[in-house]
Design a protein around this nucleic acid. Structure first.
Lengths: 336, 336
DNA sequence: TTGAAAGCGCTAACAC
DNA sequence: GTGTTAGCGCTTTCAA
């Protein structure tokens, strides 16, 4: 098949070792031989076998990413973007990206355990940090490198990239208050996600600052799909004294919220205001275009990867916090 | 770190060879020793090193998937779904999935070349089959296993999974004709994609069957993003004698088309009809909900993976063609 | 039924 | 500067 070190060695009449070192540009090989060997390698189309290198180096130069569970039919465009960022950065840093999914309904954790035990990857990128996160627990116990998207409250020392969602939701809330809204509804991500609680706090703090408060009955939890946004909003809107503004934990749910409002005969942006979170590309072209919180999705992916690889390599690295910005479109309007 | 064969061998006082064979359930090891060894392995938490296995077996048990180019800010939910399907099937078939992206604007092909040369994967899944596809050309030359999503006209012998888009577009066209439409516009995928030409044919054939024909000036090509759908539709709608129905090559562009129509003051589903292709989950909740062609995205991913792995393993396998079905929602209506 | 030995392709200590 | 030797963890002849 493909040329090996031995082939190159034979061709130039040197030992395998010499060839290896020449190709890795070690100083102890004469410039002359180095050039000779590089030349020969090129002619033979030699490329090292990564597998052999991995065995010898006892590293995989591979990082793992487990797709958030997808009910067939639903997938979050947000994470596709993050993944694209990770993949691009991985190429730059010369590591491979191993993407996995749960084998059907197997426990999420199984995948991580298996990958660790078989030494398939050098570290993991975790998304959707949970309040009590079994993955973090497990990896931490085994001193396995990881970075998380969203800081873990329980393990604050783990490297992370964060979007300050509390700040973000505060921004949206403030905006809605200025528009005159006083009755708010929330459609949050599942409560077991760290992000969910932070979002709630963001809203509550901002309301408190303005001497307002949130009716506990006006908080709904979805599963991040439009469908769940739709149903949550239906309930919120059907209740007595319905909210005039609904903040959603992600854009997908916000789309569902808008649909529900429209199905209820409400004009979004006039009779009811809706905000999202993420600013996926669809948000710009929804009907009406969605007011939402933008986060640098692709960049986040890149940073996650960079942080992890640096952590693995023992290089200096630092966590990073992004502050989302409010993108004002037409899904919110002044209270009538 | 983690236990190796040697550790197990030492523990039971047998040779490494015996342990290896016992663990792989070779018949030539007494049931007794086998049980003993399995027991010991379990106690030590032994798991084989995949890297070592790969070196020895000269296979990587890994398949490659290169993300379609993503302009940061744009990513097609359709492919996230496909990817999820691939990943789930990969887990089932016990192979790893290596996901790559182009390092910035490097030629798409580079990634494939590099992976082949360094023997990183055993085969590739290709999406977005092009009319003249350099990737297929290259892999074929090197006798490297691959499956494509969408049959290649030039290399018809390569295994593929196909959605009959010609049939699909025919379905949509027929539906629109029945609604009374006579003036059609098209927003197609880039012409270098096999799919683009097939879609055009689907429309043209159906029109011809009904003694209608398509004005060449009413064909626009987008890049699969909403944005391009928007601009294409703007042009189509601004021209003299504009179409009353616009068929789009994917849902994302259809969203853009709807936005453009709405921006031009047209009521989608009444004054202008729009269809999409893919039926991504957003389609159900767009405003208005999009009439589109459904294809079993997740399943397609699974089949692609299955087909590739079987091909690699030399098992019997067969290409498969899916026929999309028309999902009628509210973006189309009778001609007024 | 079991073990010794070789080798997958590479890197790294240690000599010369 | 360069080569010899060993070894990463595994599978697989081939003997015993």
């Amino acid at each position: 098949m493909s040329a090996t070190l031995r082939d190159v060695a034979n061709k130039v009449g040197k030992s395998i070792t010499t060839v290896s070192r020449a190709l890795n540009n070690h100083e102890d090989i004469s410039l002359e031989t180095r050039a000779l060997i590089h030349q020969a390698a090129k002619e033979l189309g030699y490329r090292p076998s990564v597998t052999a290198q991995r065995l010898q180096k006892k590293r995989t130069d591979t990082i793992g990413f487990v797709l958030p569970p997808v009910s067939p039919g639903f997938s979050d465009p947000f994470f596709s973007q993050v993944l694209a960022g990770i993949a691009s950065q991985a190429a730059k840093m010369d590591v491979d990206l191993l993407v996995s999914a749960n084998e059907d309904k197997l426990d999420d954790l199984e995948v991580y355990v298996s990958h660790v035990q078989t030494r398939r990857v050098d570290g993991f990128i975790l998304v959707r940090t949970a309040v009590d996160d079994a993955r973090i627990e497990f990896l931490n116990e085994h001193h396995f490198p990881m970075v998380t998207f969203g800081k873990s409250k329980i393990h604050p020392t783990i490297q992370f990239i964060e979007v300050d969602v509390e700040f973000g939701m505060g921004l949206a809330t403030e905006y809605l208050i200025r528009l005159g809204h006083r009755k708010f509804g929330l459609v949050l991500p599942p409560p077991y996600l760290v992000r969910s609680g932070a979002m709630l706090q963001g809203v509550q703090h901002k309301l408190a600052e303005n001497s307002l408060q949130l009716d506990g009955a006006k908080i709904a939890y979805g599963d991040l799909s439009q469908r769940s946004g739709y149903h949550s909003a239906q309930a919120l809107l059907a209740a007595p004294d319905p909210p005039t503004a609904i903040l959603s934990g992600n854009d997908l749910m916000a789309f569902g919220v808008m649909s529900a409002a429209q199905a209820a005969g409400l004009l979004v942006g006039r009779e009811v205001s809706v905000t999202g979170f993420d600013d996926i590309s669809l948000a710009e072209h929804s009907q009406p275009p969605l007011t939402t919180l933008q986060q640098p999705t692709y960049l986040i992916g890149q940073r996650l990867c960079e942080l992890l690889v640096k952590t693995i390599r023992g290089e200096a690295s630092q966590t990073e916090v992004f502050y989302p910005s409010l993108i004002i479109r037409n899904s919110c309007g002044p209270i009538v």
